[in-house]
């Protein structure tokens, strides 16, 4: 979960998703991404959100949303029932990221996963210099009250995909400085604050 800020990640996801497709947004929060997908791309959008507050905000935006826990809820969805399943800034907050990731690629023909890179240099610097759990503008929580329980780095995520037969079709790295921009340089694991992946199930036998 990320504090509200510049949402360049939303623009990236909007670019990934073709108009008129069927999209499920997991952990859709107040629906700020889903409403853009519905209005700007004309997708058939569905959201799942755990908080009543988020659900009410989605309903106020005219979205179709189900209150539920994505750690429990995805097994009821048939295979390939969505064109795209989006998990943006939520991967680090689920109890079983591996289960959720494999469910995303079962329920969706493609998956879009965006998460904060825990190997971002400011995080490393914070931990190295202060010897304390990093806090940033986007991850402002204390260690004891953070909803984020499973951090990973870009390298970790790539390794997960390789081991589990997940094909990375596209990657966009983001930095948050100057309101957020796409990072085109080298060493994203050091310099990207966020990463957004377009994934498909690949060839792995299922």
């Amino acid at each position: 979960m990320m504090a509200e800020g510049a949402r360049i990640d939303h623009s990236v996801i909007l670019d990934f998703i073709p108009a008129g497709t069927k999209v499920l947004d997991l952990g859709c929060g107040d629906g700020s991404l889903l409403v853009k997908l519905v209005r700007q791309k004309g997708v058939t959008g569905r959201g799942i959100e755990i908080s009543e507050e988020g659900v009410r905000a989605c309903i106020a935006k005219g979205l179709t949303v189900m209150q539920g826990d994505i750690d429990k809820g995805l097994r009821d969805y048939p295979d390939n029932s969505f064109d795209y399943v989006v998990l943006n800034q939520t991967l680090q907050a689920v109890k079983k990221p591996d289960v959720v990731l494999s469910e995303i690629l079962r329920v969706g023909k493609k998956g879009i996963v965006g998460f904060p890179n825990f190997a971002y240099w400011k995080m490393r610097f914070y931990l190295f210099t202060y010897g304390r759990m990093p806090k940033t503008e986007f991850l402002p929580y204390e260690w004891y009250d953070t909803p984020n329980i499973h951090f990973c780095s870009i390298l970790d995520f790539r390794e997960y995909c390789a081991k589990n037969g997940v094909t990375i079709e596209k990657t966009v790295y983001l930095t948050a400085d100057r309101g957020g921009r796409v990072l085109r340089g080298v060493r994203p694991n050091m310099f990207a604050e966020n990463a957004v992946y377009l994934l498909s199930a690949g060839e792995k036998p299922r």
């Binding site: 569905r46 009543e52 659900v55 009410r56 989605c58 309903i59 979205l63 179709t64 949303v65 189900m66 209150q67 539920g68 009821d76 969805y77 048939p78 029932s81």
Partner: peptide, 21 residues
């Protein structure tokens, strides 16, 4: 209620569900 939501959702029905605290 969630059982109903699930059955509708599996059928592709446009269903919104809220659990009020």
């Amino acid at each position: 209620a969630r059982e109903i939501v699930k059955a509708l959702m599996v059928n592709g029905v446009d269903v919104t569900y809220c659990e009020i605290d």
